[in-house]
Simulated scan of single mutants.
Amino acid sequence: MNLVFGSPGRYVQGTEVLAQAGTYLAHCGRTAVVVIDSYVLGLIRERLDTTCAEADVALHYLTFDGEITADGIADLRAAAAGIAFDLILAVGGGKCIDAGKALAHSSGRALVTMPTVASNDAPTSKNYVVYDAHHQLSEVGHLLVSPRYVLVDTGLIAQAPRAFLLAGIADALTKKFEAEQCFNAGGVNMFGARPALSGLVLAQECYRVIRQYAEPALAQAGSGEVTVAFDHLIEAVLLMSGLGFESGGLSIAHAMTRGLSKIPGAQQQVHGWQVAYGLLVQLILEDRDAELLGDMLGFYQRIGLPRNLSELGVPVIDRAVLMQVAEPTLKAPHARNFATASGNPLTCEDLIAAMLALEGLTH
Rank of each mutant, 00 (worst) to 15 (best):
M1L: 08
L3V: 14
L3D: 05
F5A: 13
G6T: 13
G9K: 10
V17G: 06
A21I: 08
L25A: 05
L25S: 10
A26F: 02
H27I: 07
C28V: 07
C28G: 04
G29S: 09
I36H: 00
S38T: 14
Y39P: 00
Y39F: 13
V40H: 00
R45F: 01
E46Y: 08
T50R: 15
A55M: 08
T63L: 07
D65W: 00
G72C: 04
I73W: 00
R77H: 06
A78P: 00
A79R: 13
I83W: 00
L87I: 13
I88R: 01
L89M: 12
A90P: 04
G94N: 03
I97M: 15
G100P: 01
L103N: 01
A104V: 04
S106M: 08
P115C: 04
A118R: 01
N120M: 06
D121S: 09
S125T: 15
N127G: 09
Y128F: 15
Y131H: 08
H134C: 07
H135N: 14
S138D: 14
L144F: 04
S146R: 10
S146E: 14
Y149G: 12
Y149H: 14
Y149N: 10
Y149P: 11
T154R: 14
L156W: 00
I157F: 08
A158D: 03
Q159G: 10
P161M: 05
R162S: 12
L166F: 05
I169C: 02
I169T: 03
I169V: 15
K175F: 02
K176S: 08
K176E: 12
F177R: 11
E178Y: 12
Q181Y: 04
Q181P: 02
A185Q: 02
M190Y: 12
P195N: 11
L202F: 09
E205D: 14
C206L: 06
C206K: 05
R208Y: 07
V209Q: 08
L218F: 11
A221S: 14
D231T: 03
E235Q: 08
V237A: 09
L243S: 01
G244I: 02
G244V: 07
E246Y: 02
G249A: 08
S251H: 07
I252R: 13
A255P: 11
A255C: 11
T257I: 10
T257H: 07
S261D: 10
K262A: 13
P264N: 07
V270D: 10
W273A: 12
V275P: 09
V281L: 10
D287Y: 04
D289A: 12
G294Y: 03
D295A: 15
F299S: 03
P306F: 06
L312Y: 11
L312A: 10
V316P: 01
D318A: 07
A320G: 03
Q324K: 13
A326N: 04
P333T: 06
P333R: 05
A339W: 05
T340N: 10
T340E: 14
S342K: 03
L346T: 06
